[in-house]
Design a protein around this nucleic acid. Sequence first.
DNA 1: TATGAATGAGTCTTCATTCAT
DNA 2: TATGAATGAAGACTCATTCAT
Lengths: 208, 208, 208, 208
Amino acid sequence: MNIHSSTQMTPPPATARARTAPVADKREAIMTAALELFVERGFFGTAVPEVAERAHVGAGTIYRYFESKEALVNALYRDQKMKMISALLTDFPASALAREQFATIWGRMARFADENPNGFAFCELHHHASYLDAESLAVEQRSTDLIINFIEHSQRRGEIRKAPPYMLIGIVMGAFIGVVRWAREQNIQMTPEHWALAQQCAWEAIRS
Amino acid sequence: MNIHSSTQMTPPPATARARTAPVADKREAIMTAALELFVERGFFGTAVPEVAERAHVGAGTIYRYFESKEALVNALYRDQKMKMISALLTDFPASALAREQFATIWGRMARFADENPNGFAFCELHHHASYLDAESLAVEQRSTDLIINFIEHSQRRGEIRKAPPYMLIGIVMGAFIGVVRWAREQNIQMTPEHWALAQQCAWEAIRS
Amino acid sequence: MNIHSSTQMTPPPATARARTAPVADKREAIMTAALELFVERGFFGTAVPEVAERAHVGAGTIYRYFESKEALVNALYRDQKMKMISALLTDFPASALAREQFATIWGRMARFADENPNGFAFCELHHHASYLDAESLAVEQRSTDLIINFIEHSQRRGEIRKAPPYMLIGIVMGAFIGVVRWAREQNIQMTPEHWALAQQCAWEAIRS
Amino acid sequence: MNIHSSTQMTPPPATARARTAPVADKREAIMTAALELFVERGFFGTAVPEVAERAHVGAGTIYRYFESKEALVNALYRDQKMKMISALLTDFPASALAREQFATIWGRMARFADENPNGFAFCELHHHASYLDAESLAVEQRSTDLIINFIEHSQRRGEIRKAPPYMLIGIVMGAFIGVVRWAREQNIQMTPEHWALAQQCAWEAIRS
DNA sequence: TATGAATGAGTCTTCATTCAT
DNA sequence: TATGAATGAAGACTCATTCAT
């Protein structure tokens, strides 16, 4: 076990990097393949050699980039969560009204879920408790804190109803996830109108 | 393979039952142990001998009551879903206003989740696609239909906002599940006040 | 392990025997059921509880009559071999010509195979080496010796060709078994004419 | 499941073969070990890990070469039967007299049984009904047809006695098998003289 | 560096045997 | 005496991981 973030394992030094990024591509290919398979069949239902095959690499190669299957799933989880956080934070309208901020958050999550359905499904539609490590849980916490901040701030301004912030997050995120799950199960493509309607519902749930 | 509902496999008749129900207790113990472990570690993350150990029975004994690990998880799922359906339906105020009906549904689900947290977590917090059989999915559908009926009926009466019923279910159930998950993760005991507050939020989300 | 013939295990003393032979019937039923199943599915392919079920007794009951599954199969083997020996020996025309004695032996084996097809198939069509004990092998030897005696005696009288007696036994018994197997596989009912024809062939093989 | 002859599963290409054939040797070692054990203890009496141990490979390795234990036994059976067919057919004296053809067949089978005693014992001394697949049974049929052809042809020429061909095959093959079994059980090494003698006996059994 | 053949620990499941009733 | 529920050792098979090439 590596002392620091053992699951990061940056690809072997790659003396002559660049050109066609031959090395990073492999890590990327592995993660993409793993993401697809974990969403399709779950963590335990996916065999490492299957990931290797879909990524067009040898089974042993995966272990040059990830210490273990568990390290791989954690790297994947953190990667997706970070992307979501980044999507939420970029140019956040810090001084806007709560209503507008809420619309921004919802819209960005919607865009993320639309553009990266596997990533969203992987992070939110599955239960990961048993194999996520402390670092992954910390990243999860960071993503939660973002919305907590928004809620607490808006509560102080009287724009969101008084209630335990964690409960409100549960309601809002739960509703969002519920909508996505509905669309998946009914095999429906979310339209901007669907998203707007759902957003309105969610806002009504928490507005003061 | 048993012709009828192979996963039921009632324990051997046990003609001379009585006293401490020595036979049914074993089936019960297995189901309880399995429920706990499936919630903790998921279906694939749980080994059958672990279930046996926690239930204080031999590994082989499980197969006297359930044809396979899959039959066990399906029996468990159906059992819990049926209990939830039954809790929802008993003396349902069929002619009340939507607001009151909603409060009834929410309150009964809350009670179910309070009294049977593992059962609820198992049914709603996990994903079950790959190993649930047709019968289990049918039971799931029945439980969904219950709420769909309520929503469509209330929409016709103008008491719930116009929106695809499945989306509203996603929002309401998602919010409910989000609240439960929040309480589990924060290790908070839901109070009647919490439930009432959450219910109010959820109602605002869908009222017309 | 019992010191003497552990596999015999005469039924429990049966203080009040007689009447409807309630005890011996059980041993008989077990052996009949086991014979059928061993022929159908082989020794390893047959589960003890299956034998119990077909014999209409409890699984534990079998162990009151036989020490183990292996003891059961040995008892069965010896039982059938003894029956065959007894069929061969009764009123054997000790002073007849070899040709007639051969016809007698062949005819009695044919009758045995016709009347007790499972018993014959069990003894001759299967390989039993790995689980037969010394006593069973001794009985097998006795049955072989019978025919050896006939062959050696007839050789001395010049009626059967000079050749190692064990080889001739191999040829005659092999031919007999080959005919029975042919009939089973082609699903043909052996007629007296078939038997006579086969007997003639076999006789030609060994006559001097 | 492989589409074509799943039991063939040629070992991974092994592009850089040569020298001591390091790859094919493993498949070979497994088949040899399995052949020995199946002869000693039967198919159901042999555990896969036992085969692995005797072949000096890991238990999992067997499954890289054979889809299942059943696939292994079928591959083995077909392999041996094909070898025997090939031995019988090579340069068969198609226009010779029946007597000479018979001697050829007998002699070649004798040679096969001498050189490959386990292979012969496996194919002929055991019963295989339950786990042989259609392809194996077809190969078995081909091998029977060879001799059937010989018999029918010779019957038409009046050189072999009139009798159901399948019965004659039973007699001849039974006699052959009986001789081999006799030699095995008496632990006798068959000499050319033994074979010639036995052949003479068998011929007398069927000649017209 | 990348590979994939090999491995053996661990999985689900069966079944011979025991023992409380 | 007879039972059959219970058991746990053993079986077939899978798969995360290693290591020789």
